[in-house]
């Protein structure tokens, strides 16, 4: 491959937490871009919230504190109502390759792109995190009815959907989830499956997990500030687009590797994997997810945003049509 010529550019990238599968895409961008520019375009990765707390990353970009950052659209739902469409519960997205397609198609819609523009940022990449699954203690929820009366840890749309099933959700902060499960404060907690459950050690204190409930995802993105993007030489912009495909591929591999590592550990720990049939899932989606989707569409349409059309895009792309 040819080396991309250009001036020396350094981006500070604000991340939170320790290096993990979730932050691997930033590492891959950093490595691939440095290789292709012979070290002229470099990403300095700052872990542990050194430059900013996760929630303030968008502000940090807006004020020009750093050039790029991770940010999750669920941090402040009303800031990015359109992006929240991708976070709706129980969207029928079966696997990561489909998810990639849905994400890229969705954010190519003019209304979705304009939302980020209005916030002063440009989206470079959306992290492919696996769907949420529950891990819990006590009676496994084999049937729809079994969720009734369960105390769970879930947020926003997923919490709405699960409360329609009779579960009551507490908003326990992630670091307290382990102890809460261990001590029976809650019966089950949802996290991206499997790496987050493993990272928080939930399998040490759990009896079962849902393997294909697939209730949705909170999306995190890599953003660059509009100023930093505008100042970037064109050949570097093209390069980012070029390496993006490779980053997506590596992202999927990292998540597969995490499954290959953690699922056997879950099995060894004696956890029961609960699989739901399509016949079980379909009525769930109609009952608990459809109303949440409809409410989101209504809210968007009421605010003059093309909610109906956007949901259509998601469903059709997910369907492969």
């Amino acid at each position: 491959q040819e080396v991309v010529e250009g001036p020396k550019v350094t981006w500070n990238v604000s991340l939170w937490g320790n290096p993990r599968a979730f932050t691997q895409p930033a590492e891959d961008f950093k490595r691939l871009i440095a290789e292709r520019t012979d070290g002229r375009f470099t990403w300095e990765l700052f872990y542990g919230g050194q430059l900013s707390g996760p929630r303030e990353n968008l502000d940090g970009l807006q004020i020009g504190a750093f050039e790029a950052a991770y940010y999750s659209s669920a941090f402040s739902p009303d800031k990015n109502p359109i992006a929240m469409g991708l976070d709706l519960p129980f969207l029928p997205i079966p696997d990561l390759p489909t998810r990639e397609k849905v994400i890229e198609t969705y954010f190519a819609q003019p209304a979705a792109a304009a939302e980020w523009d209005g916030l002063g940022v440009k989206r470079l990449y959306t992290v492919l995190v696996p769907q949420f699954e529950f891990m819990g203690v006590g009676e496994p929820p084999i049937e729809l009815e079994d969720w009734n009366g369960k105390r769970i840890r879930a947020l926003s749309g997923l919490a709405d959907a699960m409360s329609a099933l009779g579960a009551s959700s507490s908003s326990i902060s992630p670091p307290e989830v382990y102890t809460s499960l261990e001590r029976g404060v809650i019966d089950a907690a949802s996290f991206p499956f499997s790496y987050a459950h493993g990272a928080y050690g939930l399998h040490e204190v759990s009896d079962w997990y849902t393997a294909n409930l697939n209730p949705g995802v909170n999306h995190a993105h890599i953003f660059v500030s509009k100023e930093a993007w505008a100042a970037l030489p064109d050949q570097y912009k093209t390069l980012i687009e070029e390496v993006k495909q490779e980053v997506y591929a590596l992202n999927m591999k990292a998540m597969d590797d995490a499954d290959a590592k953690w699922i056997p550990i879950f099995k060894d720990a004696g956890l029961v994997a609960i699989e739901y049939t399509d016949e079980q899932r379909a009525p769930w989606i109609e009952k608990v997810a459809r109303p949440v989707w409809d409410r989101w569409v209504e809210e968007q349409e009421a605010a003059g945003r093309p909610g109906k059309e956007l949901l259509q895009v998601i469903l059709e792309t997910a369907n492969g049509s």
Binding site: D59, Q62, I63, A74, F75, S76, P77, D78, K79, L119, L155, S156, A159, S171
Partner: peptide, 21 residues
């Protein structure tokens, strides 16, 4: 104050109850 102005302009709110900050 600038942080407040951005919160107001961009409708910053809390993740669960969506209370304006």
């Amino acid at each position: 104050y600038q942080f407040f102005e951005r919160a107001l302009a961009y409708s910053d709110n809390t993740p669960d109850l969506r209370i304006p900050t």
